Computed example of a mutant assay.
Amino acid sequence: MGARKVVVFGLARIGCIPAEIGRFGTNGKLCNDHINAVVKLFDDKVKDLVHKLNGIYSDARFTYVNIGGISRPLGDIPLPTAPCCQVTEDWHCIPNTSPCPNRATSLFFDGYHPTEASNIVTATRAYTRLLPDDAFPWDISHLSRL
């Protein structure tokens, strides 16, 4: 199709979303490590593919954004995984109920979807990486200047 600059986003830490924690538990940990291990395996393969594609297509640039790494807490402070709204058994918001008053303090709106605050952090670190592992080999701001 002629794209010359491509951003490939990895998967989020699915084992940390409220619906998956509710379905599978965490064995006393913050997140479900088994699910996150499978996600990491997938993300590692995607990162390898991005590296390979950059070698094959010299007229194009590919970069990988590590959503799983970006969504990890910085330091030892656990992140809140409780949904911002009251949820039904299928982890969707109960209709006609009020969400939490300050959505900026929640990562998840319902059992599946990130809040605007969470998306802003992800987008900001994808565009200008905070840590070297946030994006490979470039963040989006550097990719756009190539």
Rank of each mutant, 00 (worst) to 15 (best):
M1G: 14
G2F: 11
K5R: 12
V6I: 10
V6F: 05
V8P: 06
L11R: 00
L11D: 00
A12S: 15
R13D: 03
G15N: 06
G15R: 03
C16E: 01
I17V: 11
P18E: 02
P18N: 01
A19C: 11
A19K: 10
G22P: 08
N27R: 14
G28H: 10
K29I: 08
L30M: 14
C31A: 08
N32A: 06
H34C: 10
H34N: 13
I35A: 13
I35P: 10
N36V: 02
A37F: 13
F42V: 01
D43G: 02
D44C: 04
H51V: 06
K52N: 09
K52V: 01
N54F: 08
G55V: 02
I56F: 13
Y57C: 02
S58K: 15
A60D: 04
A60T: 02
A60H: 09
R61D: 04
R61N: 10
T63Q: 03
T63I: 00
T63W: 08
V65F: 10
I67E: 05
I67S: 11
S71V: 09
S71A: 15
P73V: 00
G75K: 09
G75A: 07
D76R: 14
I77L: 13
I77E: 13
P80Y: 03
P80H: 02
T81L: 07
A82E: 13
P83T: 01
C84M: 03
Q86A: 12
T88G: 11
E89Y: 13
E89V: 13
E89G: 14
D90I: 10
W91L: 05
H92T: 07
C93Q: 05
I94H: 12
T97C: 07
T97H: 12
T97A: 09
P99V: 00
P99F: 03
C100R: 01
R103S: 09
A104S: 14
A104N: 14
S106I: 01
F109C: 01
G111A: 08
Y112L: 02
H113P: 04
P114Y: 05
P114G: 07
E116V: 05
E116A: 10
S118T: 05
I120S: 02
T122L: 14
T124Y: 15
R125D: 07
Y127M: 08
R129L: 07
R129M: 05
L130I: 12
L131K: 13
L131R: 15
D133A: 15
D133W: 15
D134V: 04
F136K: 07
P137S: 07
I140G: 08
R145N: 11
